[in-house]
Computed example of a mutant assay.
Amino acid sequence: MCLANPLGALLFSFLLAGRVYDNEVARQLALGLIDSGVSCVGADCFKLTFFVLAGVSAAGAFCSIILTMRIRPVYQMLYAGGSFKLPQTSGH
């Protein structure tokens, strides 16, 4: 659990976004769209990174829905038995 955040930051920020950006700068430089290889122009700079992150987010949401559907019967059995119900108080 402690490694998920830094590992995700390394994979998506440094490796994915950095390489996609550098490749787009090189492509724009080769096409003559920019004068120097320092910056990128336009939406293509991070378009692939956006689609990859959107796909990963969609996969995570899908897995979460499947996990919720699979664990629901367990919680229904637990709460139906009354073991986790709060004691009833009489209203005076």
Rank of each mutant, 00 (worst) to 15 (best):
A30C: 06
A61M: 09
G60C: 05
E24S: 04
V41M: 05
P73L: 15
G55L: 07
L11E: 03
V25C: 00
I66G: 03
I71M: 12
N5K: 09
S57T: 15
V56Q: 02
L48P: 01
I66K: 14
I71W: 03
C40R: 01
A58E: 07
L29A: 08
F12N: 08
I34P: 08
L33G: 05
P73D: 15
L29F: 12
G91K: 12
D22A: 14
G55S: 12
L16K: 08
A26Y: 07
F14L: 12
H92S: 13
P73M: 13
G82P: 05
G55A: 10
I71Q: 08
E24N: 12
T49F: 02
S83C: 07
L16M: 10
C40K: 00
V56C: 13
A61V: 03
L16T: 02
Y21M: 09
A43I: 08
I65M: 11
A58P: 01
A30I: 02
T89D: 04
L33A: 06
L3H: 02
S90I: 13
L33P: 00
C63M: 10
C45I: 01
A4L: 09
L3K: 00
S57K: 05
S90Q: 13
R19W: 09
F51D: 15
L10C: 10
T68N: 09
Q28W: 03
C63P: 00
S64P: 00
G82L: 02
Y75W: 15
M1N: 05
G37I: 04
L10A: 14
S36I: 04
G91V: 13
H92G: 15
Q76Y: 04
K85T: 03
R27F: 00
L7T: 06
M69W: 12
L31V: 03
I34C: 06
C40P: 00
L31C: 03
L3I: 04
N23Q: 13
A4F: 05
Q76A: 10
I65H: 12
A43F: 01
F46N: 07
C40N: 02
L48E: 06
G82K: 05
I65Q: 11
S90T: 15
Y75N: 07
P87F: 02
A30L: 07
V20K: 08
R70A: 13
K85A: 10
F14I: 13
R72E: 11
L7N: 00
V41K: 05
G81A: 03
M77A: 14
S90G: 06
